[in-house]
Computed example of a mutant assay.
Amino acid sequence: MHSWEVFIVEDDIRIAEINRKFVEKVPGFSVCGIALNEDEAKEQIAILKPDLVLLDIFFPDMNGLDFLRWIRSEFRGIEVIMVTAATEVDTLKHALSDGVFDYIVKPVIFQRFKDTLLNFHEYKKSILQLSADKEINQNLIDSILKREKAEIEPSYLPKGIDPITLEKVISMLTQYKKGYTAEVLGERIGTSRTTARRYLEYLVSEQKATADISYGGVGRPERIYKYGNG
Rank of each mutant, 00 (worst) to 15 (best):
Ile8Val: 14
Ala16Ile: 04
Lys21Ser: 13
Gly28Phe: 08
Ser30Arg: 14
Ala35Trp: 03
Asn37Ala: 06
Gln44Gly: 00
Gln44Arg: 13
Val53Thr: 04
Asp56Ala: 05
Phe58Pro: 04
Asp61Trp: 08
Asn63Ala: 01
Asp66Thr: 10
Phe67Ala: 03
Phe67Gln: 01
Leu68Ala: 08
Arg69Trp: 02
Trp70Pro: 00
Ile71Lys: 01
Glu74Trp: 04
Glu74Asp: 10
Gly77Cys: 09
Glu79Tyr: 05
Ala85Gln: 08
Ala86Thr: 06
Thr87Trp: 03
Thr87Glu: 11
Val89Gly: 01
His94Gln: 14
Ala95Asp: 06
Asp98Ile: 01
Gly99Arg: 00
Gly99Met: 04
Asp102Arg: 08
Lys106Asn: 09
Pro107Lys: 02
Val108Phe: 06
Phe110Pro: 09
Gln111Leu: 11
Gln111Tyr: 13
Lys114Pro: 05
Asn119Phe: 07
Phe120Asn: 02
Glu122Asn: 11
Tyr123Ser: 03
Lys124Ile: 14
Lys124Phe: 07
Ile127Leu: 15
Leu128Val: 04
Leu128Glu: 13
Leu128Thr: 07
Ser131Phe: 12
Asp133Pro: 00
Asp133Phe: 11
Ile136Trp: 05
Ile136Gln: 06
Leu140Phe: 01
Leu140Ile: 02
Asp142Cys: 05
Leu145Glu: 12
Lys146Ala: 08
Ile152Lys: 12
Tyr156Ala: 13
Pro158Trp: 07
Lys159Pro: 06
Lys159Asn: 15
Gly160Met: 10
Pro163Cys: 08
Thr165Phe: 08
Thr165His: 09
Leu166Ile: 09
Ser171Arg: 10
Gln175Ala: 15
Gln175Asp: 15
Lys178Thr: 12
Ala182Pro: 00
Glu183Cys: 07
Val184Asp: 14
Glu187His: 09
Arg188Met: 15
Arg188Cys: 10
Thr191Ser: 09
Ser192Arg: 05
Arg193Gly: 03
Thr195Asp: 10
Ala196Phe: 06
Tyr199Arg: 03
Leu200Pro: 01
Leu203Ser: 07
Lys208Gly: 06
Asp212His: 09
Gly219His: 02
Arg220Trp: 05
Asn229Ser: 14
Asn229Thr: 13
Gly230Ile: 10
